[in-house]
């Protein structure tokens, strides 16, 4: 399945909804979207990955790149993911310590606002 991207604003946070496969073929589109959102002043992002079917290290690189960009503006980039097959790659690479990974969009927003 190809990559579908959507985004909307919720509680002062830009929610990016990703569906499909994030790999070396599709990752550039996600990268462009994240760059565009940051350039337009959205510094608090939540990437909802509940409908992601495949994620490789190229996709991880794009998420790390997005995190670097928002942090440059004292922003945040958190993830929503409960799928074990996707969480596995975050564990292998040690990125569970780098990203906030939550079970729902609302939980991600609430955690950020409570900090």
């Amino acid at each position: 399945m190809d990559l579908k991207l959507d985004h909307h604003t919720q509680d002062d946070t830009e929610i990016v909804v990703v569906e499909g496969e994030i790999d070396v073929y599709t990752a550039p589109r996600l990268r462009e979207l994240l760059i565009d959102l940051v350039n337009k002043g959205n510094f608090h992002l939540v990437v909802n990955m509940e409908k992601v079917e495949f994620l490789d290290s190229t996709g991880l690189g794009v998420l790390v790149g997005g995190l670097k960009r928002v942090r440059a503006h004292d922003g945040t980039l958190d993830l929503v993911c409960t799928q074990e097959r996707i969480l596995k790659i975050f564990r292998i690479t040690g990125l569970t310590k780098v990203f906030g990974i939550y079970e729902s969009v609302q939980e991600a927003i609430d955690k950020r606002k409570s900090k």
Binding site: V24, A27, P28, R31, D56, S57, T58, L60, G61, V62, L63, V64, G65, L67, K68, R71, I89, I92, T93, G94, L95, K97, V98
Partner: peptide, 25 residues
Amino acid sequence: VAPSLGEHTPPGGVSGLSPDVGLAV
């Protein structure tokens, strides 16, 4: 080792991680 946010992006690549991360996986 786990990647850090300081890793470079390879020329022409989209990854923010070292190519070695793929091998780590």
